[in-house]
Design a protein around this nucleic acid. Sequence first.
DNA 1: ATTATCTATAGATCTATAGATAATGC
DNA 2: ATTATCTATAGATCTATAGATAATGC
Lengths: 201, 201
Amino acid sequence: MTRQALIGAARQVMAEQGNTDVSIQPIADRADVGFGTFYNHFETKDALFDAAVADALEEYGQLLDAATAEIEDTAETFAAGVRLTLQLAASHPEITGILRFRGLQHVHSGTGLGPQALRDLEAGKASGRFDIKDTQVTLGAVGGIVLALVQLGATNDLEATAGEGTAELVLRMLGLPAEEVTTGHGDSALPASDRPRTGHR
Amino acid sequence: MTRQALIGAARQVMAEQGNTDVSIQPIADRADVGFGTFYNHFETKDALFDAAVADALEEYGQLLDAATAEIEDTAETFAAGVRLTLQLAASHPEITGILRFRGLQHVHSGTGLGPQALRDLEAGKASGRFDIKDTQVTLGAVGGIVLALVQLGATNDLEATAGEGTAELVLRMLGLPAEEVTTGHGDSALPASDRPRTGHR
DNA sequence: ATTATCTATAGATCTATAGATAATGC
DNA sequence: ATTATCTATAGATCTATAGATAATGC
């Protein structure tokens, strides 16, 4: 599909350059599409990049869903999500590139991921598993931690334990008792490509 | 100074638009400077915006320093920094606008703020006040939390307690015992404009 | 027959510079 | 006298569209 080819090209550019400073011609070239065809699918360049971000976030959400679908414990769901996201730099660099560029803007916007995480937080709060007050603030904190660590991983060499360490920080922030936080689950998350992608959420 | 006028104009544009999609002419207009003068001070538009971000981060660092200079306890320094930053949306919207736009990229870069925070974390770790492992990861987590909450505050209406709630999340993450985390210091941070700006750090 | 795509281009916009003017330093 | 600033503009680049061509649906 031509539209998807354009979105794919825009995703690549965003992840590679970390910005949207490109003219339409090279995007069309990259998508192997005539220049004018762009205007059959998008009104402006901005509209394309917005769609490309949404597309990448959608894929990210499906990866997370697939990786955590069978996890029962809410705390472990969050921990696994954190670990998976930090592994994504290796398996899906394009997605992490886009997260670095625009993730912060979408932490609190209803892109599917947010509402789901919010429900999980509220369930964990109601069941007493999480000791938290404002779920909205907590969601922001979790999202911010993950994004900042994705950023750190992109510019510095992370220790192999960084994903696990970050997951522990998140669990502790969510109010889990110390002994549970450090009960290492460091090897639980398979590479995303080895997991089924049923995409049900 | 002309250079500073250009930087100021660039800061405004970034904070207002949340991007750098402007041509040089309107920047020069805003700085009340002839178009060609731009090239006496900067080689490219990117160079100007980089300088503008650095300028805003420098000011942010000085605000933080001034507000926390007389705080002895490391934990309280972090808590006060978090509260101040979330208040900045009201007192210094330009700075928070730039933090939203580029803050994530600078959490781990040596812009003065980072190294200082890193030293504080290491001191707190050494003294046993903080129960943390990797200080680099922890710094990222703290920075990410703050940035995500600044973002949340910009798009949603935050409850008045959000700053305090966020500070508590950070302290808990740093490993402080629960009873200390909730010992409210909610009224400790004055509006930044009421504080001395000695700027020593 | 209808819809999507491509090529070519007009018009607008933007960058970078040259040359003229104004401001500052000695 | 030297340096900074301004105005004007050449050349490059980019967007948006028109019209021709190709692909698809009936």
